[in-house]
Design a protein around this nucleic acid. Sequence first.
DNA 1: CTTGGGAGTTAGAATGATTCAAAATCTCAC
DNA 2: GTGAGATTTTGAATCATTCTAACTCCCAAG
Lengths: 148, 148
Amino acid sequence: MIQNLTEHDREHLQEALVKSGQKVTPQREAVFTVLLAQRDHPTVDEVFNRAREVMPGLSLATVYNCLETFVGCGLVRQVNHERESTRYCPNLAPHAHFRDKATGRVHDIELPPEVLKSLRSILPPGFDSEVIEISFHGRAQSGEQTSN
Amino acid sequence: MIQNLTEHDREHLQEALVKSGQKVTPQREAVFTVLLAQRDHPTVDEVFNRAREVMPGLSLATVYNCLETFVGCGLVRQVNHERESTRYCPNLAPHAHFRDKATGRVHDIELPPEVLKSLRSILPPGFDSEVIEISFHGRAQSGEQTSN
DNA sequence: CTTGGGAGTTAGAATGATTCAAAATCTCAC
DNA sequence: GTGAGATTTTGAATCATTCTAACTCCCAAG
Ligand SMILES: [Mn+2]
Ligand SMILES: [Mn+2]
Ligand SMILES: [Zn+2]
Ligand SMILES: [Zn+2]
């Protein structure tokens, strides 16, 4: 179920790590592979369990470390909903998140530039935002899928 | 520093509680008063410390209970940013939150209906959202104040 | 080759916000 | 005034995350 990284993805990983002075390690490859394999916004524990299948000695602390590293070098985003466990998302395009009340699943929602712009426009002068997080909570007809 | 509730606010509290089959208690009044007195999105601990000044025997668990009750009957909103402590907001108008990176303070940002509409419009068919949360993170020129 | 240092990994302990459980107190309808 | 149910209180439990310290890897300098 867990494919290897494509050449492109491996380069993406290497470039981001090296650019921030860090090394490509087997653990980081495994964790990154898990994130790309199934883009369902897994929690740390889910990443841990999936990655362990392919690298049995991997530790939970390392998964935390890898994910923190990836966030730090811009390879993935953290996704939080209320106080639930943090989830991770490798989709770097601007997008919002929809959490399905029934299943708990998180879907990516594409965010068109003009909507993003209208959002930025509500900030009064003097407010300068680097990050905007948008999250929906509700019901999705089962079978609904976004394109990620 | 902690004013009593206005007649209007007291009625607002009573109405919301009674409507959902719950009672007005001194603890609930104290906690609600604290929330209205200073609309700075306090954490549970901040509410606890402020409310204790006026009701020394109040317990932390009760503050958690009161706030949960208020959220349940729609008197206040929870505000979460990443994994920080939950904050509470009695502003019931549709609004977004701006967290100032420098001070940690959270500001209300008015959300015009047309922007809200454009946001809802990005949901693909089949997605039905009950709650939308929007939060900005960045810098606010010191002294900037929103109108809440 | 050795060796030493830095980065990364690991197991396990610590943290801290929140929740839970059980006993005590209050309230209100009867 | 009584009793049932709601609320409050204290202290313990939970659990995601962070921290600590020991261990492993890797490489570059000697
Ligand atoms: Mn790429
Ligand atoms: Mn009102
Ligand atoms: Zn996403
Ligand atoms: Zn607010």
